[in-house]
């Protein structure tokens, strides 16, 4: 049961058209241009686990989240939820079983609605409450569940602090009894002491309600705290997937190593960090071969020409790196 796959992405890709306006293209003879935001990403999430996607801005992690919940359509590939393809016409009922929590608790709640109406909306939309009394009882139950008082339902979002608003977002996400939550940077807009409250709440709810999470974050320490498994993305591609403990203790892909190395060290152990050279290239013109090769200390001719495919390594981890696959980089 615990190893059962709930969500599977198969070679998922998404392009965005970033061409200039038609008239400019005609006058200046420019071709259409497209940006490959997500490029051939495959992974699966098991029931009851938390898979975290990490990466720097522009790596496509939020696009993956939006593709899964259907806020963007796929350019290619398939997404399977509980074995059924989400692109199938009959898949609408599956959508009720997944919900999303957004980064900004200020922008994601309607300022003109009372909190009880915000939380009740998914219940009404899916017709999950037989009458008004049952609806009110369910809203009160949800607010209590996320650590608010039932009376808080009468208030408006602006009367709450950032952390409390994020609790409201979580209550709204839970209201249709989902099994799967997509959390896009749920704590990035919060202060650390409040972040701890929300992370603890999310963990607690996961245990009590048996939820499965896809957790998107750029904060590796937060990811190390919440994730069962971690996927690392770079320039629209998945470069490494491993269980959290293995990934943080023995990262294999040079980019993962670089990311972990770059985290400011609270312990001040005086570790000498290898300063990271260069920056993420523009996704409009990704380098040929491995996307990381211009910054990689292990890059050779093959890395500059041939794109590495994600291969499974011993221990169930996956890395897309020629150097790792050829054994040029050893285990740590």
């Amino acid at each position: 049961m615990p190893a059962e796959t709930l969500l599977e992405l198969v070679d998922v890709g998404r392009e965005f058209d970033v061409s200039r306006p038609w008239l400019n293209r005609v006058l200046e003879g420019e071709p259409r241009r497209s940006l490959q935001a997500v490029d051939g990403v495959s992974f699966s999430i098991r029931r009851g686990e938390t898979l975290a996607l990490v990466g720097e801005s522009g790596c496509g992690k939020s696009t993956v989240a939006r593709l899964i919940v259907g806020l963007y359509t796929l350019s290619r590939g398939r997404i399977l939820f509980d074995g059924a393809d989400l692109a199938d016409p009959g898949s609408a009922p599956l959508r009720r079983r997944m919900q999303m929590i957004f980064q900004d608790p200020y922008a994601s709640l309607n300022p003109r609605w009372r909190v009880r109406d915000i939380v009740a909306e998914p219940i009404v939309a899916h017709g999950l409450a037989p009458d008004a009394k049952a609806l009110a009882a369910r809203v009160a139950e949800l607010l209590t569940q996320v650590g608010l008082a039932p009376e808080d339902g009468e208030r408006f979002p602006h009367e709450f602090s950032g952390g409390q608003r994020q609790r409201v977002s979580i209550a709204r996400a839970l209201s249709s009894n989902p099994e799967f939550l997509v959390c896009d940077e749920p704590t990035s807009a919060l202060d650390v002491s409040v972040q701890a409250q929300i992370l603890n709440l999310m963990k607690d709810l996961q245990q009590r309600l048996g939820l499965t999470y896809l957790f998107i974050s750029h904060n590796l320490a937060v990811v190390a705290h919440v994730a069962t498994r971690v996927g690392v993305m770079y320039l629209g591609r998945l470069v490494e997937v491993a269980d959290a403990k293995t990934l943080f203790e023995r990262p294999r892909h040079p980019y993962t190593r670089m990311l972990i190395d770059a985290i400011p060290d609270l312990e001040m152990s005086g570790k000498s960090r290898t300063p990271v050279a260069g920056e993420v290239p523009s996704p409009l013109t990704p380098p040929p071969g491995c996307a990381f090769n211009p910054r990689c200390p292990h890059a050779n001719e093959r890395c500059r020409t041939e794109r590495p495919v994600p291969l499974e390594l011993p221990g169930g981890r996956i890395a897309a790196c020629h150097a790792v696959q050829e054994g040029r980089i050893g285990d740590l």
């Binding site: 602090s161 409040v194 972040q195 701890a196 603890n200 320490a221």
Partner: peptide
């Protein structure tokens, strides 16, 4: 001290984070 303990750190156990209840 509450603030320090509420910061998630790499390489520590997976128990719950210490939290300061309430808000500033």
């Amino acid at each position: 001290s509450g603030l320090m303990r509420s910061i998630p750190k790499l390489g520590e156990g997976r128990e719950t984070l210490a939290q300061i209840d309430g808000a500033m």
